[in-house]
């Protein structure tokens, strides 16, 4: 067990090196460069350009730049943003809570609705409810979420005026952000309940949009996985023993049905960033996704390579955690 854990950890290293190398190389292949971008279209005089390049370390050969980047990254220094002149790590961690808050809330509502509806649909197979769940989730996971976001904005923000169109909290609340999670900050902050309410209102539509596909996938997955388990022999045995319906479903069947759901949940969380880029664009949410896209436009090399390395590490670690959970929940997997 310990050995396999260690082995898995070791496979992470080449993946991360590969990911950082690709990010490093690709962003340099994009036409244009940060210095020209900074100095404007006409450029400055060549001496200034050369000086800036030297200051930013961009005059060194590419492989040397990469080694410097990796060497610094190993001690937690991701470099300095060319545009904002602030450390990439600081920039990243100031934006990451916004994305994480959005993602967690979306996943929570996806789970809270998706699991029960999936279970109900499986238990009442071929009922109206079942078809409704199948149909809705089909629409849900086919949804172009950028369009869905706009539709919700037209309906709830423009027509009904229930929720704000963009941002994280009303501008009248001047919060000193301690944790970066506005739900927590506003709850304990000076604005009191009103500030919290404002933060919640700003979060509703983005979370709804970002959670749509996960909700659909979880509901479907729960339904099909539970249906499969309900057909197994041990469920029949449990029923034959005279156990209550509730006990059979919740204790015996659901536990086993949860295994694939956990896996899918992890995969969903990992792929949430793609949705986050779109959602953050629609709602002007100040998160990591929008920041990275803007940095591609500005050719901010350190931000891209640093930001991508952060995200890749998180995705990889998350998958690792899920693998371990899998081994823990599902002893059969341990031997492999």
């Amino acid at each position: 067990m310990a050995l396999s854990v260690l082995k898995k950890f070791l496979t992470v290293i080449p993946t991360l090196i590969g990911a950082s190398l690709i990010a490093f190389a690709l962003i340099r292949m994009v036409p244009g460069d940060p210095v020209t971008n900074l100095l404007g279209e006409r450029g400055g005089d060549p001496a200034v350009v050369a000086e800036m390049n030297q200051k930013l370390g961009l005059d060194k050969p590419a492989w040397e730049q990469y080694f410097i980047f990796i060497k610094n990254a190993c001690v937690g220094d991701m470099g300095t943003s060319i545009v904002s002149k602030r450390p990439v790590s600081e920039e990243f961690w100031s934006r990451f809570p916004a994305t994480l808050e959005l993602s967690v809330v979306s996943m929570v509502w996806a789970l809270v609705l998706g699991l029960p509806f999936g279970i109900l649909a499986a238990l009442k197979r071929n009922s109206v409810l079942d078809y409704a769940v199948i149909g809705t989730s089909l629409i849900g996971y086919s949804m172009p979420i950028f369009w869905w976001g706009l539709i919700l904005v037209i309906f709830f923000s423009v027509n009904l005026g229930w929720f704000p169109v963009s941002g994280r909290i009303g501008i009248e609340y001047d919060l000193v952000s301690k944790t970066g999670f506005l739900l927590i900050d506003s709850w304990f902050g000076e604005g009191g309940f009103l500030a919290f309410k404002s933060a919640v209102k700003h979060l509703v539509l983005p979370a709804l949009v970002l959670g749509t596909i996960p909700l659909a996938v979880i509901a479907r997955m729960t339904r099909s996985s539970l249906l499969e388990v309900l057909g197994e022999d041990f469920v029949r045995t449990a029923k034959a023993k005279g156990l209550s319906h509730y006990r059979v479903v919740i204790i015996h069947a659901l536990r086993n049905a949860l295994i694939p759901i956990v896996t899918v949940f992890g995969l969903l969380f990992g792929s949430l960033l793609t949705g986050a880029i779109l959602t953050e664009t629609i709602f002007s949410w100040p998160g990591v996704g929008r920041w990275l896209v803007k940095s591609v436009e500005a050719r901010d090399y350190p931000v891209i390579q640093g930001g991508v390395l952060y995200i890749a590490s998180m995705v990889v670690l998350l998958n690792l955690v899920i693998d371990f959970m899998y081994m823990w929940v599902y002893p059969k997997m341990r031997s492999k």
Partner: peptide
């Protein structure tokens, strides 16, 4: 490993950079 790397990179961002 190559596929792991592709999956670890945020896909939309990767695609954006390729298009850029």
């Amino acid at each position: 490993r190559l596929m792991d790397i592709l999956m670890a990179l945020p896909s939309l961002l990767l695609a954006i950079v390729v298009v850029a």
